[in-house]
């Protein structure tokens, strides 16, 4: 597993999209989520994010997500893009 090297962002604040900010973590996954559908899908979103991080082999990251009602496949794409941009060791 790996750690994020530098801060990076992906996505936008537009409806149906999500904005993702990643940066070096403190030894674990530190996820903060702000979502217009927190009540309805908060858990599902967190699960999707962890899935992508695990696929990317990343377990040391600080990740902040502002979700504007993005579908899972969109959030996952934004997280993956941010992680790739952030780079891993």
């Amino acid at each position: 597993m790996g750690a994020i090297i530098r801060t990076a962002t992906a996505g936008t604040f537009e409806s149906s999209d999500a904005y993702v900010e990643v940066g070096p973590g403190r030894g674990s996954i530190d996820l903060s989520l702000e979502s217009v559908v927190e009540q309805q899908f908060g858990e599902a979103i967190r699960r999707a994010v962890r899935e992508v991080l695990s696929e990317c082999g990343c377990d040391d990251i600080e990740i902040r997500i502002v979700d504007r009602g993005a579908l899972d496949c969109v959030i996952k794409a934004r997280v993956e893009a941010a992680v790739r941009r952030g780079g891993m060791n």
């Binding site: 992906a10 794409a77 893009a81």
Partner: peptide, 15 residues
Amino acid sequence: KDAARILVRNTLRHM
């Protein structure tokens, strides 16, 4: 370019 190709790949895969 990098973000778009991941997004397109995901939508092709899931939609």
